[in-house]
Design a protein around this nucleic acid. Sequence first.
RNA 1: GCAGUCGUCGCAUAGCCUGGUAUUGCGCCGGAUUUGAAAUCCGGUGUCCCCGUGACUCGGGAGUUCAAAUCUCUCCGACUGCGCCA
Length: 430
Amino acid sequence: MLDMNLFREEADLIRADHTKRGIPHDAIERVIELDQSWRNLLHETDQLRREKNEAARGIGAAKKAGDHAAADAILAQVADLGERISAMESQTNEAMETRDRLRMSIPNLLHHDVPQGADESGNTVHAVHGEKPSFSFEPRPHNDLIEMNRWVDLKRAAKISGSRFFFLKGDLARLEFALQQYAVEFLRQREFTFVQPPVMMNRQAYEGVTDLADFETVMYGIEPDKYYMIATSEHPLTAMYMDETIPEEQMPLRMVGVSQCFRREVGSHGQSDLGIWRVHQFTKIEQIIIARPEDSWALHEELLKNCIDLWNSLGIHYEVVNICTGDMGTVAAKKYDLEAWIPAAQQYKEIVSCSNCTDYQANRLNIRYGQPGHPNQPVVHTLNSTAVATSRALVAIMEQYQLEDGRVAVPYALQPYMGGQTVLEPCEWG
RNA sequence: GCAGUCGUCGCAUAGCCUGGUAUUGCGCCGGAUUUGAAAUCCGGUGUCCCCGUGACUCGGGAGUUCAAAUCUCUCCGACUGCGCCA
């Protein structure tokens, strides 16, 4: 959510941003109008309250003095003020709620480096790492490899849960576990603290970290308890400091979170999502930084550097992409994606997303930094980046490390976490 | 899950029974004093707005009332004990 003062004092910045995104300005103007009418209503309400308070102050004094006639006179005078005030109050609250509901739908201000474009075809290549693997045979798509090795059971998962759920079996499950441990240790050595978050959150905290539309299309809601399953550990780890002031000497806070992630994937379909590429439940190792505003752009590059070093160490060939205006979404001010080469499909596909959300989440969550107790503390910036989403990492490894017989070589860096094993063997049953 | 105790400004505390201006200490900020510091003294130290002799604020919400930190209901959270459980 953008700061209200931005609409009041620097609305042209927001207008210019909408122009760059190619979206209409109506919502901005409407927020400004709604704010003005809220402020008018608030002032009127305050005047009525003042009138009532001034009158009511006499009641206690009159009663104490035993002058019941005077007290009754004031009671009569004040009688209907209360009703007028509560009518005004509900109007005032409604005006503010309408303003803020609309304000929450207005996207973050973009960094000037963000390229313009209508959709993902406008993303620009920022860097290329590694080389396309060459095969002396026709490489298989990962959905064939998981079937012939009996590593993934989609059918039985569909039977007991639904489509896009999966059982992960044998050596591929062990490799998944190895990825988790490797990624956490990798980031621990770069001053990130390992944190395991809750996987359910309440609505209020969740509204602080996500686009409102995500409640319909992304998150699972839990009934009858009013919780939401987290779509990524970014959400609990960012909301963690809601309504707090972080001591300045602790900044920046670096965390590496690991959690199961749950996504409805409403509207997703198609051949490109076969196998375990797009699933309802997967594990993700995530980098989170809570920073002072003046440090956040350097730290965004640090997050990207960590991804690059990590994925280079896994020996995966990928591109770094600078996400354009049309593909950006609501919360991030700038976003890099890592897209891994998928040889069977002859495509680069997204495996990592690395964002600086500036103060957009922190405004809504009311996270500040400085010395606790001081007035007017500055708001923090929040940043997040995938380290490894294991389901997609497994796809990239299987596709790029596959052998002619359908087995898959283990990336060198993961071998110590696999008891020295160098090749994934098929599961014996299935 | 049951029972009890509790939730007040950054921290700590008073006020609650008996409704009527939210107390005090620490910390912090500014000023005075000082060569400088400590000590001492004075003032400030939650949020909002049109910045005032303004409004709001006592875990969240609702109710009673002219008036709620205070009374009632409800939800959330903490602690203690019991029960259950990986």
